[in-house]
Amino acid sequence: MRKFAAFLIMFFTAFLVLSQETKIEGGLVYMFAPQWDKAIQTYNFSRPFLENQQPLFDIGGGISATQIFGSKNRLKHGFSLSGFSLESRAKNESFENVLRLGILKPTYLMHFFNSDKTSGLYTEFGLSLVISVLSRKVNGSLFDFNEGRYRAYGIGGEISNKVGYRFEKKGKLSFSPFVALAYTPYLYSPNTEGLINQTQGLASKSWTPIFNAQIGVSFGL
């Protein structure tokens, strides 16, 4: 335990010493996961007794923290940790169904920018691990979809590209609007259909690709 704590302290010290820039980002995310769409569409299709349909997961919000490491090169490396949250809520008489999706992404990124100038365009390519957590609440209670299981987890990998324009403020402070695109070719989430439609293998596959697009602002410290 002590060894682990010492390692963590060393790691973070090195991280701060080496890091050139810390960025905090926030934005809106648009998501398209075809197999999850299918699960929700099948849920809607199969339940004509619900007057209001369950919306698909599409727009959500997210924040992330990024560290870019110092180097004289125009290509820099960094890490970021992002979290997104999306909600699908349908209120029907005596039946309110809320699906909540959380996505966590630790990312390794390559940051390119024109170092001749203090402000301007930059682009980032990222490689992420994607972890998804889906839960459902019916009439306010967390839904147990299979013998004490309340959450459906997923895991996959993602590639992304971000483009932003950096406006330099005083000192090291900067802010930059950005757009980003990300593609997850494979996210394994075997219990998603079980949670949404309460079936296994009837409506969708146990994995899905995910496309997402993001628009946001980043503050550099």
Partner: peptide, 23 residues
């Protein structure tokens, strides 16, 4: 950057329009 913005907006608008909540 142009590529990213283009490839962000066009498919997003297209996909939003195509995606239906029901089968």
């Amino acid at each position: 950057s142009l590529l990213s913005i283009g490839s962000l907006l066009i498919p997003s608008v297209y996909m939003s329009a195509c995606r239906k909540g029901n089968l």
